[in-house]
Amino acid sequence: MKPAMDDRGKRLGMWLFLYTEVMLFGGLFVLYAVYFSMYASDFMAGGKELDRFFGTVNTVILLVSSLAVAASITAVQRNEKRASVVWLTAAILCGALFLINKYFEWSHKIHEGIYPGSDDLIYGEPGRNIFFGLYYIITGLHGIHIVIGMALLGVALLFTIKGRITGDNHVFLENAGLYWHLVDLFWIFIFPLFYLVL
């Protein structure tokens, strides 16, 4: 029979869910790997068109937000509710900042006429079309995950404020955190694969 509170089991469930996410992105990474081997030079040229500065800033933002989430768990474990709330808010703000950056990046590119199905891509080099197609799909999917992660962290924040997440019972926060870190992990790979291909 299940013990009253099996946090370990709940985290196990979350980890299993994370595996499904890994495989979801994994399918796209298969495509990336194959097309990169086919169109290496187009991918390199495409990578130069992306804004490295924006990419780096977003990487830093996500790393900091990951720290904030990890710190909020430490805070909750020490029963420092206030600190935990601050850390969580910071993490959510980081997520928002990331999305704003992404918005500017995307709209800039779209403005330049580079978007899926645009004449520029369709009639240009096939490799370039594939590069930007993958760019939009992968970063778009990642963006959706950021939004979901922010929502989860938001709920965790609410629960912390209301006192439903405490030093003894914070598995929800841990699971939301696991999800957020995973989203960060994906970005750690997306960043060099798109912005830094040489």
Partner: peptide, 21 residues
């Protein structure tokens, strides 16, 4: 909906990759 062309040979895609996935 978007016509990215990931599997469309005319746009650089490879239809066989779809079958792999």
């Amino acid at each position: 909906f978007l016509g990215v062309g990931l599997f469309d040979p005319a746009r650089g895609g490879d239809p066989i990759l779809y079958q792999h996935l």
